[in-house]
Simulated scan of single mutants.
Amino acid sequence: MRRIRIKLNRIPSLPERRRVGRKIMADLGIKLQMGWNPFTENIAPKAYALMFETLDKFLAVKTKDNRPDTVRGYTSYVKLFKKWLLEHGFDETSYVCSFTESDAIDFMDDRDLAVSARTFNNSILFFRVLFNWMIERKYIKDNPFMAVKRKPKRLTQKIRRLFTPEEFNELIIWLEANNVPYLVMALMCYCCFIRPKELSMLRCRDIDLDNQLIRISASIAKNEKDYTRTIPDSMMKYVRKLDLSNPGHYLFGDHPMYDFSPGTKKASSRRFASYWSYVVRPALGFPKELQFYSLKDTGITNMVNSGVPLTSVQQQADHSSLAITSIYIGKTDRASEALKAVDIID
Protein backbone atom coordinates (compact mmCIF):
# COMPACT_ATOMS: atom_id res chain seq x y z
CA MET A 1 0.00 0.00 0.00
CA ARG A 2 1.32 3.45 -0.93
CA ARG A 3 0.82 6.34 1.45
CA ILE A 4 1.35 10.09 1.30
CA ARG A 5 1.94 11.70 4.67
CA ILE A 6 1.29 15.34 5.52
CA LYS A 7 3.16 16.06 8.74
CA LEU A 8 1.76 18.65 11.14
CA ASN A 9 4.20 18.18 14.01
CA ARG A 10 5.73 21.58 13.23
CA ILE A 11 2.59 23.08 14.86
CA PRO A 12 3.30 23.08 18.63
CA SER A 13 -0.30 23.53 19.83
CA LEU A 14 -2.36 20.32 19.77
CA PRO A 15 -5.74 22.11 19.30
CA GLU A 16 -4.28 24.14 16.43
CA ARG A 17 -2.76 20.99 14.92
CA ARG A 18 -6.17 19.31 15.01
CA ARG A 19 -7.86 22.36 13.47
CA VAL A 20 -5.37 22.47 10.59
CA GLY A 21 -5.70 18.69 10.16
CA ARG A 22 -9.48 18.95 9.86
CA LYS A 23 -9.13 21.70 7.27
CA ILE A 24 -6.67 19.64 5.21
CA MET A 25 -9.00 16.62 5.33
CA ALA A 26 -11.94 18.75 4.20
CA ASP A 27 -9.92 20.23 1.32
CA LEU A 28 -8.64 16.81 0.27
CA GLY A 29 -12.17 15.40 0.39
CA ILE A 30 -13.40 18.04 -2.04
CA LYS A 31 -10.46 17.38 -4.39
CA LEU A 32 -11.04 13.61 -4.28
CA GLN A 33 -14.72 14.09 -5.16
CA MET A 34 -13.58 16.05 -8.23
CA GLY A 35 -11.42 13.15 -9.39
CA TRP A 36 -8.05 14.20 -8.00
CA ASN A 37 -5.48 11.42 -7.59
CA PRO A 38 -2.59 12.20 -5.19
CA PHE A 39 -0.46 9.45 -6.75
CA THR A 40 -0.55 10.95 -10.22
CA GLU A 41 -0.03 14.58 -9.19
CA ASN A 42 3.54 15.83 -9.01
CA ILE A 43 3.36 17.31 -5.51
CA ALA A 44 6.22 18.56 -3.33
CA PRO A 45 6.81 17.03 0.13
CA LYS A 46 6.10 20.32 1.95
CA ALA A 47 3.28 21.48 -0.31
CA TYR A 48 0.88 21.72 2.63
CA ALA A 49 3.09 23.97 4.71
CA LEU A 50 1.40 27.23 5.69
CA MET A 51 2.21 30.04 3.26
CA PHE A 52 2.60 32.79 5.87
CA GLU A 53 4.89 30.66 8.04
CA THR A 54 6.97 29.79 4.99
CA LEU A 55 7.33 33.47 4.07
CA ASP A 56 8.50 34.24 7.61
CA LYS A 57 11.00 31.38 7.43
CA PHE A 58 12.36 32.75 4.13
CA LEU A 59 12.97 36.14 5.77
CA ALA A 60 14.64 34.52 8.78
CA VAL A 61 17.06 32.63 6.53
CA LYS A 62 17.83 35.64 4.33
CA THR A 63 18.40 37.89 7.35
CA LYS A 64 21.46 35.82 8.23
CA ASP A 65 22.96 35.92 4.74
CA ASN A 66 22.36 39.45 3.47
CA ARG A 67 23.09 43.10 4.14
CA PRO A 68 20.52 45.10 6.17
CA ASP A 69 19.46 47.10 3.09
CA THR A 70 18.76 43.88 1.18
CA VAL A 71 16.79 42.44 4.10
CA ARG A 72 14.70 45.62 4.31
CA GLY A 73 13.86 45.25 0.63
CA TYR A 74 12.91 41.58 1.05
CA THR A 75 10.78 42.40 4.10
CA SER A 76 8.95 45.12 2.17
CA TYR A 77 8.15 42.72 -0.68
CA VAL A 78 6.91 40.00 1.70
CA LYS A 79 4.72 42.49 3.58
CA LEU A 80 3.22 43.62 0.28
CA PHE A 81 2.64 40.01 -0.78
CA LYS A 82 0.93 39.07 2.50
CA LYS A 83 -1.37 42.09 2.19
CA TRP A 84 -2.37 41.05 -1.33
CA LEU A 85 -2.99 37.45 -0.24
CA LEU A 86 -5.30 38.57 2.59
CA GLU A 87 -7.22 40.79 0.17
CA HIS A 88 -7.70 37.96 -2.33
CA GLY A 89 -9.14 35.06 -0.37
CA PHE A 90 -6.02 33.70 1.33
CA ASP A 91 -5.42 33.70 5.07
CA GLU A 92 -2.87 32.52 7.61
CA THR A 93 -4.09 28.92 7.24
CA SER A 94 -3.58 28.85 3.46
CA TYR A 95 -1.06 26.35 2.11
CA VAL A 96 1.91 27.04 -0.10
CA CYS A 97 0.42 24.80 -2.80
CA SER A 98 -2.78 26.87 -2.87
CA PHE A 99 -0.94 29.73 -4.62
CA THR A 100 -1.04 28.95 -8.33
CA GLU A 101 0.40 30.27 -11.57
CA SER A 102 -2.91 32.05 -12.16
CA ASP A 103 -2.58 33.79 -8.79
CA ALA A 104 0.95 34.91 -9.68
CA ILE A 105 -0.33 36.45 -12.91
CA ASP A 106 -3.17 38.22 -11.06
CA PHE A 107 -0.77 39.53 -8.43
CA MET A 108 1.62 40.95 -11.03
CA ASP A 109 -1.29 42.43 -13.01
CA ASP A 110 -2.18 44.41 -9.89
CA ARG A 111 1.46 45.45 -9.47
CA ASP A 112 1.54 46.57 -13.09
CA LEU A 113 -1.19 49.12 -12.37
CA ALA A 114 0.67 50.61 -9.41
CA VAL A 115 4.37 50.74 -10.34
CA SER A 116 6.77 51.66 -13.13
CA ALA A 117 8.03 49.11 -15.65
CA ARG A 118 11.40 49.06 -13.91
CA THR A 119 9.84 48.35 -10.49
CA PHE A 120 7.58 45.73 -12.10
CA ASN A 121 10.63 43.84 -13.39
CA ASN A 122 12.35 44.14 -10.02
CA SER A 123 9.24 42.64 -8.40
CA ILE A 124 9.31 39.67 -10.78
CA LEU A 125 12.98 39.13 -9.96
CA PHE A 126 12.29 39.06 -6.22
CA PHE A 127 9.33 36.69 -6.40
CA ARG A 128 11.21 34.33 -8.68
CA VAL A 129 13.98 34.28 -6.07
CA LEU A 130 11.43 33.67 -3.30
CA PHE A 131 9.69 30.78 -5.06
CA ASN A 132 12.97 29.27 -6.28
CA TRP A 133 13.93 29.15 -2.61
CA MET A 134 10.67 27.28 -1.97
CA ILE A 135 11.57 24.82 -4.73
CA GLU A 136 14.99 24.21 -3.14
CA ARG A 137 13.31 23.59 0.23
CA LYS A 138 10.78 21.15 -1.31
CA TYR A 139 7.69 23.31 -0.76
CA ILE A 140 6.75 23.42 -4.45
CA LYS A 141 7.77 21.78 -7.72
CA ASP A 142 7.43 24.71 -10.12
CA ASN A 143 7.85 28.48 -9.88
CA PRO A 144 4.49 30.19 -10.62
CA PHE A 145 6.22 33.50 -11.42
CA MET A 146 8.04 32.02 -14.40
CA ALA A 147 4.76 32.48 -16.29
CA VAL A 148 4.92 36.26 -15.86
CA LYS A 149 6.76 38.09 -18.63
CA ARG A 150 9.18 40.92 -17.88
CA LYS A 151 8.66 44.36 -19.38
CA PRO A 152 10.83 45.06 -22.44
CA LYS A 153 14.11 46.85 -21.81
CA ARG A 154 13.04 49.96 -23.73
CA LEU A 155 10.39 50.61 -21.05
CA THR A 156 12.79 50.28 -18.12
CA GLN A 157 15.45 52.81 -19.07
CA LYS A 158 16.44 55.19 -16.27
CA ILE A 159 14.86 58.61 -16.66
CA ARG A 160 17.86 60.75 -15.85
CA ARG A 161 20.24 62.78 -17.97
CA LEU A 162 23.53 64.61 -17.62
CA PHE A 163 23.92 68.17 -16.35
CA THR A 164 24.83 70.83 -18.86
CA PRO A 165 27.79 73.03 -17.82
CA GLU A 166 25.37 75.89 -17.19
CA GLU A 167 23.10 73.79 -14.97
CA PHE A 168 26.04 72.46 -12.99
CA ASN A 169 27.40 75.98 -12.39
CA GLU A 170 23.95 77.12 -11.24
CA LEU A 171 23.86 74.24 -8.78
CA ILE A 172 27.29 75.04 -7.30
CA ILE A 173 26.46 78.73 -6.85
CA TRP A 174 23.06 78.02 -5.26
CA LEU A 175 24.33 75.36 -2.85
CA GLU A 176 27.34 77.45 -1.80
CA ALA A 177 24.93 80.21 -0.83
CA ASN A 178 22.29 78.00 0.80
CA ASN A 179 23.69 74.66 2.01
CA VAL A 180 27.46 74.04 2.05
CA PRO A 181 27.27 70.53 3.61
CA TYR A 182 24.93 69.45 0.83
CA LEU A 183 27.30 71.03 -1.70
CA VAL A 184 30.13 68.86 -0.32
CA MET A 185 27.85 65.84 -0.55
CA ALA A 186 26.97 66.67 -4.16
CA LEU A 187 30.64 67.11 -5.07
CA MET A 188 31.53 63.79 -3.45
CA CYS A 189 29.02 62.22 -5.81
CA TYR A 190 30.22 64.29 -8.81
CA CYS A 191 34.00 64.16 -8.29
CA CYS A 192 34.50 61.07 -6.11
CA PHE A 193 31.61 58.94 -7.40
CA ILE A 194 30.51 57.87 -3.92
CA ARG A 195 27.06 56.31 -3.71
CA PRO A 196 24.37 58.08 -1.62
CA LYS A 197 24.02 55.21 0.88
CA GLU A 198 27.78 55.19 1.40
CA LEU A 199 27.75 58.98 1.83
CA SER A 200 25.15 58.64 4.57
CA MET A 201 27.43 56.36 6.60
CA LEU A 202 30.70 58.29 6.29
CA ARG A 203 32.19 59.69 9.50
CA CYS A 204 34.48 62.65 9.97
CA ARG A 205 37.43 60.33 10.62
CA ASP A 206 37.06 58.95 7.09
CA ILE A 207 38.22 62.28 5.62
CA ASP A 208 42.01 62.60 5.31
CA LEU A 209 42.61 66.26 4.48
CA ASP A 210 46.41 65.97 4.48
CA ASN A 211 46.42 63.31 1.77
CA GLN A 212 43.19 64.46 0.08
CA LEU A 213 41.54 61.08 0.52
CA ILE A 214 38.15 59.71 1.54
CA ARG A 215 38.37 56.24 3.06
CA ILE A 216 35.34 53.97 2.65
CA SER A 217 35.45 50.84 4.80
CA ALA A 218 34.17 47.45 3.71
CA SER A 219 31.45 47.65 6.36
CA ILE A 220 29.67 50.43 4.46
CA ALA A 221 30.83 49.82 0.87
CA LYS A 222 28.39 48.29 -1.59
CA ASN A 223 31.01 45.81 -2.81
CA GLU A 224 32.08 45.05 0.80
CA LYS A 225 35.71 46.02 0.14
CA ASP A 226 37.85 48.81 1.58
CA TYR A 227 38.63 51.55 -0.93
CA THR A 228 39.65 55.20 -1.15
CA ARG A 229 38.58 58.18 -3.24
CA THR A 230 40.84 61.08 -4.19
CA ILE A 231 39.55 64.58 -3.39
CA PRO A 232 40.38 66.94 -6.30
CA ASP A 233 42.15 70.22 -5.48
CA SER A 234 39.16 72.25 -6.69
CA MET A 235 36.92 70.53 -4.15
CA MET A 236 39.16 70.93 -1.10
CA LYS A 237 38.06 74.49 -0.28
CA TYR A 238 34.50 73.28 0.24
CA VAL A 239 35.46 70.22 2.31
CA ARG A 240 37.54 72.43 4.63
CA LYS A 241 34.40 74.40 5.50
CA LEU A 242 32.97 71.38 7.36
CA ASP A 243 33.64 70.94 11.08
CA LEU A 244 35.61 67.68 11.19
CA SER A 245 36.80 68.10 14.78
CA ASN A 246 34.72 65.17 16.11
CA PRO A 247 36.09 62.02 14.40
CA GLY A 248 33.16 59.85 15.45
CA HIS A 249 30.46 62.18 14.14
CA TYR A 250 28.72 61.35 10.91
CA LEU A 251 29.99 63.54 8.10
CA PHE A 252 26.43 64.38 7.08
CA GLY A 253 24.24 64.69 10.15
CA ASP A 254 20.47 64.70 10.44
CA HIS A 255 19.39 68.12 11.77
CA PRO A 256 16.18 70.15 11.37
CA MET A 257 15.60 72.28 8.27
CA TYR A 258 17.76 70.05 6.06
CA ASP A 259 20.94 71.00 7.89
CA PHE A 260 23.43 68.29 6.91
CA SER A 261 26.41 69.51 8.94
CA PRO A 262 28.35 66.77 10.86
CA GLY A 263 26.47 65.30 13.81
CA THR A 264 25.84 62.32 16.07
CA LYS A 265 22.84 61.12 14.04
CA LYS A 266 23.33 60.25 10.39
CA ALA A 267 21.11 61.60 7.64
CA SER A 268 19.68 58.85 5.44
CA SER A 269 20.09 58.69 1.68
CA ARG A 270 16.31 59.16 1.48
CA ARG A 271 16.70 62.51 3.21
CA PHE A 272 19.35 63.48 0.65
CA ALA A 273 16.90 62.61 -2.12
CA SER A 274 14.06 64.46 -0.39
CA TYR A 275 16.08 67.68 -0.20
CA TRP A 276 16.96 67.34 -3.86
CA SER A 277 13.37 66.69 -4.98
CA TYR A 278 11.55 69.19 -2.77
CA VAL A 279 14.06 72.00 -2.35
CA VAL A 280 16.98 72.03 -4.80
CA ARG A 281 15.26 71.03 -8.02
CA PRO A 282 12.25 73.39 -7.61
CA ALA A 283 14.49 76.28 -6.53
CA LEU A 284 16.61 75.97 -9.67
CA GLY A 285 13.82 74.94 -12.02
CA PHE A 286 15.55 71.68 -12.94
CA PRO A 287 13.48 69.04 -14.80
CA LYS A 288 12.70 65.66 -13.24
CA GLU A 289 15.35 64.02 -15.45
CA LEU A 290 18.05 65.83 -13.44
CA GLN A 291 18.36 63.63 -10.38
CA PHE A 292 20.92 63.61 -7.58
CA TYR A 293 22.56 60.54 -9.11
CA SER A 294 22.91 62.47 -12.39
CA LEU A 295 25.88 64.09 -10.64
CA LYS A 296 27.80 60.81 -10.71
CA ASP A 297 26.97 60.15 -14.37
CA THR A 298 27.98 63.70 -15.29
CA GLY A 299 31.17 63.57 -13.23
CA ILE A 300 32.40 60.33 -14.79
CA THR A 301 31.51 61.56 -18.28
CA ASN A 302 33.27 64.90 -17.81
CA MET A 303 36.33 63.27 -16.28
CA VAL A 304 36.65 60.76 -19.13
CA ASN A 305 36.11 63.37 -21.83
CA SER A 306 38.56 65.81 -20.22
CA GLY A 307 41.45 63.44 -20.86
CA VAL A 308 41.91 61.81 -17.44
CA PRO A 309 43.37 58.32 -18.04
CA LEU A 310 40.67 55.66 -18.13
CA THR A 311 42.48 53.59 -15.52
CA SER A 312 42.35 56.52 -13.07
CA VAL A 313 38.65 57.08 -13.71
CA GLN A 314 38.04 53.34 -13.32
CA GLN A 315 39.76 53.36 -9.93
CA GLN A 316 37.88 56.46 -8.74
CA ALA A 317 34.53 55.06 -9.92
CA ASP A 318 35.23 51.58 -8.53
CA HIS A 319 34.31 49.99 -11.86
CA SER A 320 35.07 46.29 -12.18
CA SER A 321 36.48 46.72 -15.69
CA LEU A 322 37.59 49.36 -18.19
CA ALA A 323 34.72 48.27 -20.42
CA ILE A 324 32.25 49.82 -17.96
CA THR A 325 34.25 53.06 -17.76
CA SER A 326 34.50 53.21 -21.56
CA ILE A 327 30.71 53.45 -21.79
CA TYR A 328 31.02 57.09 -20.71
CA ILE A 329 33.40 58.06 -23.54
CA GLY A 330 31.66 60.58 -25.77
CA LYS A 331 28.46 60.46 -23.69
CA THR A 332 27.42 64.04 -24.40
CA ASP A 333 24.87 65.94 -26.46
CA ARG A 334 27.55 68.19 -27.96
CA ALA A 335 29.15 67.42 -31.32
CA SER A 336 32.76 66.27 -31.25
CA GLU A 337 35.11 69.02 -32.44
CA ALA A 338 37.65 66.37 -33.49
CA LEU A 339 35.09 64.58 -35.64
CA LYS A 340 33.86 67.83 -37.18
CA ALA A 341 37.42 68.52 -38.35
CA VAL A 342 37.90 65.10 -39.95
CA ASP A 343 38.41 65.25 -43.73
CA ILE A 344 38.03 61.79 -45.26
CA ILE A 345 36.13 62.80 -48.40
CA ASP A 346 38.26 62.81 -51.53
Score class of each variant (00 low, 15 high):
residue 78 V to L: 01
residue 74 Y to S: 02
residue 124 I to T: 05
residue 279 V to E: 14
residue 308 V to W: 09
residue 298 T to P: 03
residue 104 A to W: 09
residue 338 A to N: 08
residue 317 A to H: 08
residue 47 A to V: 07
residue 106 D to M: 01
residue 100 T to L: 08
residue 39 F to T: 07
residue 95 Y to I: 08
residue 341 A to Y: 09
residue 20 V to I: 15
residue 57 K to G: 06
residue 283 A to K: 14
residue 284 L to P: 05
residue 219 S to D: 14
residue 277 S to R: 06
residue 134 M to L: 15
residue 220 I to Y: 13
residue 43 I to L: 09
residue 160 R to P: 05
residue 177 A to Y: 04
residue 48 Y to V: 01
residue 75 T to M: 03
residue 304 V to F: 05
residue 228 T to Q: 14
residue 346 D to A: 06
residue 116 S to N: 01
residue 261 S to N: 13
residue 112 D to H: 11
residue 148 V to S: 07
residue 337 E to D: 13
residue 257 M to Q: 12
residue 140 I to V: 15
residue 52 F to D: 12
residue 272 F to Q: 01
residue 35 G to E: 08
residue 198 E to M: 02
residue 5 R to H: 10
residue 214 I to G: 01
residue 35 G to D: 08
residue 258 Y to A: 15
residue 172 I to S: 11
residue 33 Q to M: 13
residue 95 Y to H: 14
residue 58 F to K: 02
residue 180 V to C: 12
residue 291 Q to A: 14
residue 322 L to C: 09
residue 209 L to V: 15
residue 219 S to C: 08
residue 177 A to Q: 15
residue 118 R to L: 09
residue 137 R to V: 00
residue 258 Y to N: 15
residue 153 K to L: 10
residue 149 K to G: 04
residue 63 T to W: 06
residue 319 H to N: 02
residue 118 R to M: 05
residue 116 S to Q: 06
residue 109 D to H: 05
residue 16 E to V: 13
residue 198 E to P: 02
residue 111 R to C: 12
residue 263 G to N: 11
residue 100 T to P: 02
residue 181 P to F: 04
residue 217 S to R: 14
residue 131 F to W: 15
residue 68 P to Y: 06
residue 335 A to T: 02
residue 91 D to V: 05
residue 338 A to H: 13
residue 45 P to T: 10
residue 8 L to M: 09
residue 10 R to Q: 05
residue 199 L to P: 00
residue 244 L to N: 10
residue 341 A to K: 15
residue 195 R to L: 06
residue 340 K to W: 03
residue 25 M to Y: 07
residue 319 H to F: 03
residue 19 R to A: 14
residue 238 Y to N: 10
residue 171 L to H: 03
residue 273 A to S: 08
residue 35 G to C: 06
residue 303 M to I: 06
residue 9 N to H: 14
residue 333 D to V: 13
residue 97 C to D: 12
residue 338 A to E: 13
residue 233 D to Q: 12
residue 38 P to I: 06
residue 243 D to W: 12
residue 163 F to C: 04
residue 236 M to S: 02
residue 215 R to S: 12
residue 194 I to K: 01
residue 324 I to L: 08
residue 325 T to W: 03
residue 205 R to I: 04
residue 183 L to R: 01
residue 24 I to F: 01
residue 229 R to T: 04
residue 202 L to W: 03
residue 336 S to V: 08
residue 132 N to T: 10
residue 69 D to V: 04
residue 297 D to V: 01
residue 342 V to T: 13
residue 62 K to L: 01
residue 182 Y to D: 00
residue 11 I to Q: 07
residue 47 A to Q: 08
residue 215 R to E: 05
residue 145 F to G: 00
residue 183 L to W: 09
residue 222 K to N: 10
residue 224 E to P: 05
residue 205 R to K: 15
residue 227 Y to L: 13
residue 101 E to Y: 02
residue 100 T to S: 15
residue 140 I to C: 00
residue 53 E to A: 09
residue 151 K to S: 04
residue 88 H to S: 07
residue 272 F to P: 00
residue 99 F to H: 12
residue 216 I to M: 04
residue 194 I to W: 00
residue 262 P to H: 09
residue 123 S to W: 03
residue 235 M to D: 06
residue 173 I to V: 14
residue 260 F to L: 07
residue 288 K to R: 15
residue 281 R to Q: 06
